[in-house]
Structure formats: C-alpha cells, structure tokens
C-alpha cells in the first residue's frame, strides 16, 4: 500500500485544489484522507456523505470542584501555563490555556481537581462523489492535539484501504512544519510538494523540504502559478535540481482554478487546458510511486 501525502509549507498554493483533482482522476482506485484537520476544505469539492461520524477524545482538561476547593492556591503556583487565574476569590481553570498536564491535580491537598478527557473534534468516514471512501475530520476551535487527530484520520484511512484492497491512500496535508505536518508525513511513501514562484513559496518550500528530508521520504514538486515570476521560477527549478526533487509539473497562473472551486468542481472537470497538465502530473506521480499508470 502506498501513501501519497500532498503538502505545501505555504498556504494558498493550490494544494487542496490539486489533491481533489487527483482524487477525481483516481476514482475508486484510492482512499482519500483529508489531514488538514484545522481548516479542512476538501469536502467542499468532493461531496462526502458523512455516513459515519465519531467524536475524537485526546488530551485532558483540569476541572476544579469549587465545593471542595480550599483556595490554597497550590494549583496556580505550580501551573506553568498561567491557566488557573483567581477570579472573585475562586481559582478558575482557563480552558484555553490549560495544557492538560495534570500537575495541579497532583498537588491539590484536598483533591478538588480532576482531569477530564477532552473532545477535540470529530472524524468522519464518507463516500464521496467519485464512488470511493474519504476519511476526514473537523478539529474543534482552538483545540490542541491536531497531530493526534491527523494520526487518527490516517489510521482509519489505512484500515479502509486494507479492507477494500486499495493500493493508494491520497492524503491532503496541512500547511506549516509543526505537529500536524509531522503527523501527516509519518509513514508516507511519497510526498508531493506544491509551491508557487513567489518569494514566500520558495522560502516555505525550503523549510518544509528540510522536514521531508529528515523523514527520508522520496518527493516531487509541482510548481503552480508557474508564470508569476521568472526569476523565482528559475530559483525554484535550481533548488529542485540541487536537492534531487522530482520536478513533477509546472502549471501556469490560471483563474479557472478559482472558477472551478467556486462552482464546486475540480479543475479536471472544468478547464480542458489545465486538466491536461494535471492529468499528466498525476500519471507522473504514479510512475514515481511505482504504480502502473
């Protein structure tokens, strides 16, 4: 089983638009996993039916029983996250600041503090309009532990692929280089990096590629909006060559990408010219992953 993870470092480079287009091209050959759990958008293009939903619990939250509390202040004194302010004479847990370390409960002399498991979001198993399965999730606002929810989505997708005998899991990753991205990359067979020839695109690609390199994952790069800036494009090409990153495709700036999204379609269902490039690119990826095209 091959796990193809699409990431971008920088947001807004076209990662989700392209991943959704690949999903449409691959049809029922794949299982789709949307691991951008923080701002998941892929469902807007592929119409999942949300057939199966489960709450996801991870991490803890301190709760103080005010009827038992002696207001000694020990809990606030040991909290490194300033999460237990005193308000009108009562120690109150600030739910946003609490990291769930449990230290306060361990030092409370009257055992007034308990830790409860937090519901940080939901995950879903859906059939999408391409006739295949997608596993996706929604992180609760401000929630911690997005990396763990990402891991959950990937594991569920893997279980589906095993059960249905699918060879490919296509993963839409998240922006950045922090915990959700690290979680998206773990276990990946191949990484597709989506960038654009802007100073930010180049900068962010270099950083996220360092991470991919640390994981030792083979990768290729799509340069989207490739005609925005010739100088940065040349720098991007040189960087790919120097790092031995497969140069998968160059897709010119095309406002039809936005038009397609606005109409709830992927680019391969909307604009013939761009569709050709994206189709070639998907074939290229399959070749790199070692799958028959």
């Amino acid at each position: 089983m091959k796990e193809i993870v699409v990431i971008s470092g920088k947001g807004g480079t076209g990662k989700t638009s392209l991943t959704a287009a690949f999903a449409v091209l691959a049809g029922s050959d794949i299982v789709v996993a949307d691991c951008d759990v923080d701002a998941a958008d892929m469902h807007l293009l592929v119409e999942p039916d949300f057939a199966h939903q489960e709450a996801f619990f991870s991490g803890q939250l301190a709760v103080i029983d005010q009827s038992m509390c002696s207001a000694c202040g020990e809990c606030a004194a040991v909290c490194r996250f300033d999460a237990i302010p005193i308000i009108n004479g009562q120690y109150i847990v600030d739910e946003i600041s609490c990291e769930g370390c449990g230290y306060c409960a361990r030092v409370c002399p009257v055992e007034a503090i308990t830790n409860i498991e937090q519901n940080v979001g939901n995950w879903f198993r859906s059939e999408i309009r391409t006739g295949t399965t997608m596993v996706h999730a929604g992180l609760k606002i401000g929630a911690d532990n997005s990396g763990k929810l990402v891991a959950k989505v990937k594991n569920e997708a893997k279980a589906v692929a095993e059960k249905e005998g699918k060879e490919i899991i296509l993963v839409d990753g998240s922006p950045g280089v922090g915990c959700p991205v690290v979680s998206s990359l773990s276990g990946a067979s191949y990484t597709v990096l989506v960038t654009e020839p802007t100073v930010s695109g180049l900068h962010d690609l270099k950083r996220v590629h360092q991470l991919v390199k640390m994981f030792g994952i083979d990768c290729g790069c799509i340069i989207n909006k490739s005609d925005l800036n010739a100088d940065v494009l040349a720098e991007l090409r040189a960087f790919l060559a120097k790092e031995g990153i497969a140069h998968l495709a160059e897709i010119p700036y095309n406002e039809q990408f936005t038009a397609a999204v606005t109409n709830g379609k992927t680019i391969v269902e909307w604009d013939e010219e761009a569709a050709g490039l994206v189709r070639d690119c998907w074939r290229e990826i399959q070749t790199h992953v070692g799958l028959p095209t």
Binding site: D38, A39, L139, G142, D144, S174, G176, P180
Partner: peptide, 10 residues
Amino acid sequence: APPGTSCPVI
C-alpha cells in the same frame, strides 16, 4: 498570525 484555528492561532 499563523493560519488555521487551532492552538497556535489562539
């Protein structure tokens, strides 16, 4: 700020 709605944004 960073993108998203999770802990770094908060």
